[in-house]
Write a protein that binds this DNA or RNA. Sequence first.
DNA 1: ACCTGAACACCGTTCAAGT
DNA 2: ACCTGAACACCGTTCAAGT
Lengths: 199, 199
Amino acid sequence: MQSRPYHHGDLRAALLVRAEETLREKGPGALSLRELARDLGVSHAAPSRHFKDKQALLDALALAGFDRLGAGLTAACGAAGDSFAEQLGALARGYVGFATANVVLLDLMYAVKHDPAASEALIAAGQRWAELAIGLIAEGQRRGEVREGPLELIGTPVFATLHGYASLAVGGMLPPEAVATGLDDVITYMLRGCAPDRP
Amino acid sequence: MQSRPYHHGDLRAALLVRAEETLREKGPGALSLRELARDLGVSHAAPSRHFKDKQALLDALALAGFDRLGAGLTAACGAAGDSFAEQLGALARGYVGFATANVVLLDLMYAVKHDPAASEALIAAGQRWAELAIGLIAEGQRRGEVREGPLELIGTPVFATLHGYASLAVGGMLPPEAVATGLDDVITYMLRGCAPDRP
DNA sequence: ACCTGAACACCGTTCAAGT
DNA sequence: ACCTGAACACCGTTCAAGT
């Protein structure tokens, strides 16, 4: 009876995996719960046991995306040198790298939500990685490489620059061949914005 | 025979108007061509005469959004003082203002496209307003208020910061009450990033 | 030219019923 | 607990036909 070859209470995980594949291959909006069920060899009503909604599945996907992003950024910063410039560079390259490697997923992660209840968890997830950037800035201040002041006063603009560059790049608003080289310029611009007032 | 009260060859315009209303009231994805047609009192097949696709309607909406954004920003900068700081401030407030007043539309304007042919016009429209920022920087350089260098080298980071801040704010990733006050900090951060190297 | 009506092939969601 | 099968109310798109 190996007729159910794949999911033994793991239909939930299988749905998430397959959903992300479909998203990557065929774009958003081409994702259908019924097709997902077909691909996995279950009835079209089966997914509703694991996700009450199509939106619930998308939210779970986005949440997993934030987890992977956080892990990737932590690793990238850990592998970089101690100076603020090196740390910020690693963060920036990590973020833009994740964005270009997970175009549709990033869109999903920051998608405008209309159900405020469901989006709370996503906002929290988003702020978790923002705290990574905040910590980096605090350390930079301790080293005297970052200007004084409240952490978000400098963290928010940096966060905005990074996220903005990533979404412009991913959306095709920047000449694609210039994305990698332009990032270096963005990094030095951010460093100027963070630098202490006077030498 | 006033039974067709509204559209006389203007079904196209009426569709766009109603679509944007629906988008604003009920969010994206709640937009259905059939419901649009119902609202306007035409058959469900009528819209296809004016937009070959649902996507085509969305693209037209996004394009109109860029036009309004460009007009608004031009006006805002025209009404501001001549100094680079005042011009950049006006641009920033104008952009974030448009974003918060047109949340779903902004999402649409920068949505990741998969049909590269259709998105070309949108990218061009996006770059048109970017050129406004570029011109502003060129003038700032002439005045000695902006560091020397290729225009996009300084323009792209500014563009990224602005767009990133707007999308974070709109997506609820920033505490909503801090959006307006935080913008001032972002503006001074951008000015630092643009400032000439040494006094 | 512009629109209608019917038809086709899909959806998401729900719910009794099975195991 | 987990899944099935049928049913419901909707979609987008196409296409002959009307005016």
